[in-house]
Each structure stands twice: as C-alpha cells, then as structure tokens.
Design a protein around this nucleic acid. Structure first.
Lengths: 151, 151
DNA sequence: CTAGGTGCAAACCCTTTGCAGTAGT
DNA sequence: ACTACTGCAAAGGGTTTGCACCTAG
C-alpha cells in the first residue's frame, strides 16, 4: 500500500528541477488528510480556505496537474462536469480500486479488484497496445436510491 | 446486435410524449452512418454542416442528451475536454466493448469483452448496488507510438 | 390548438494563460 | 542570482439557458 510522503514529493520534484513550495506541500497534505475522497480543484480550494490557508485557485489547478504528472495523484471524471483527483494507487505492487457511481444521487463508492490484471496481459498480446493503467466505472443505483425508488 | 432504427426512436419518443423531429432523426442518422466513431457535439455539428444540413449547436447538444436519456446513445469522456457519444451497445443480450486510449496520440481503439458480466453480479451481491452499466478504459501506448518512442 | 422543440445569443462554469511580482535552490 | 512559482484577472472552450418563434401531434 504505497502512501506518498512529503519526502517522495521532494524527491520527485528534484528529479525534474521543480521546486518544493509550501503550496504544493499543502495540496498534497490535503489528499493525505482526506483518504478515499475524490476532490475537485474547487474542493481543495474550499478546504484550504476553511483552514485559513488561501492559495490561488490557478495554483491549485497547477499543483493538481503537476502532482498527476509526477504520478502522485490520479485524475478522473465522474461526469459531474469537473475533474477529480485522488492519491494514485496504481503501480506494480498495488491493488486497483474502481468506482460504483450512483446515477441518481451521484454518490461514488469504491471497491477493490485485481481481476483485470490478467485481462490486460491478454489485450496487450492481442492488440500490441502497451497498457499502463486502467479505469473501471460501474453505473447503477445505490442501496438508498433503490429504496427511495420503491416508495 | 441491437442497432437502433428510426422506428425505435419514434417509439421511445412517444413513450415520453416527446416529438419526432427532423433534427432528432438527423442526429441519430449520423451515428448510424458513423459506426465505431466517438463523436462530440462539435463533430456532429460539423458533419451536419458538410452535409448542408445546418442544425443549431444548442439543438445538437439537446438531442445528444435526449438520445442518451432514451438509451440510444451512450455518453463517454476520453479526457480530451469534451463529451463524446456512440450508439449504445449495452443491454441484456449485447456484448460490451471497451476502449484502449493511447496517452500519447489520443487514438481510441475498441475491443470486445464480456468478462465483467460475472463481476457485476458479484459486486451487486456484495455491495447492494444495483448495477445497470459499466465502462472500462485502458490507458497506454498504441503500436505506432511505441515505435516512435523507440526512435 | 397546444405542448413541446428550435435557433440564437448570452450566460455559465471549469480550466488555462499572460504577466508582474515573489521565492526556492 | 537564476529560474521556477504564485496570484490575479482576463481569456478560453465546451455546455447550458432564456426567450421568441415555430411545428409535430
């Protein structure tokens, strides 16, 4: 279970001659403090504000993109009109987790799965595509919304 | 292999007391004429123009949303900043197809798969989530981009 | 005839960018 | 010092909306 530390951030930044700034540390810290959440740029900006740590929204966007490029965050879309991010859990030794998205209330639930590892291998052989990652989304109705439909 | 006809469209529209308009027929026709493509609203609008059949862009957007609601089209995001659509191939008796997205050149390749049907059943039992659909994306490098990287 | 649909342009919202000032290394 | 970074505000690009007019049923 690879969790990133500030040291990882420092190292990855150095490798590309980028600088370790308080803003970047703070953005990473927010994701470490909010495991399992799928935060948008606005979410991050809002959390910052409520912590009395205002950072320019443009800087938040730039940090999110940078952290994604560094492989620390993973960008994803749930169809609500904005990009969302979470700490990257892909990689050689880690388990994938995927998302169940309720099409009624928009809630997102996670679940673990390694089933697709074999499939990737298979596809690489058949298609010549060199696969580095995958994302799976399941759509449907969560328990609560199923109940409310029955009413 | 369920391909939608204009009759299907008419019926589905009637069920919701929506009207069968030339614009909606034309938009559906474009998807029938372009199988296997992932068209954005702008794409559709452009194809219309080149066919001398101008339809207001707003109407294109509204038609795409309606056709998705009716289950005729499927909306998807490939991370290029706009929503894309294709004829819906999900459903009780149909095969899913998923997408290989090249992270270098942006090309999207399709492949067939039923592997996740069992998984859906499994997840429904464990999570209580009522799954109606799923989307899978694989990211990596296509053959051509692998070659060009080696140069 | 009447509800629903279209087209246009303006509004929206998320995201990116130019620029002048600031701060890591 | 040199280069990268930040903050602001403006611009950008895809999508949605208000409104007057139109049209399918």
């Amino acid at each position: 279970m690879p969790v990133f530390t500030m040291e990882d951030l420092r190292r990855k930044l150095q490798e590309r001659q980028h600088k370790m700034t308080p803003q970047r540390q703070t953005v990473l810290q927010i994701f470490l403090d909010h495991p399992g959440e799928h935060l948008s740029a606005e979410d991050v900006h809002g959390i910052l504000r409520s912590n009395q740590l205002e950072i320019g929204l443009a800087t938040v966007y730039r940090s999110l993109e940078l952290l994604s490029d560094l492989g620390i965050l993973q960008k994803m879309e749930f169809g609500d009109g904005c990009s969302r991010y979470e700490v990257n859990t892909t990689g050689p030794s880690s388990h994938h987790h995927h998302h169940l998205i309720c099409t009624k209330c928009g809630k997102v639930i996670e679940f673990e799965d390694d089933l697709l590892e074999n499939l990737e291998q298979d596809i690489m052989e058949k298609s010549g595509f060199n696969i580095t990652d995958h994302q799976v989304k399941f759509f449907g109705y969560c328990k609560e919304c199923q109940d409310s439909i029955e009413n």
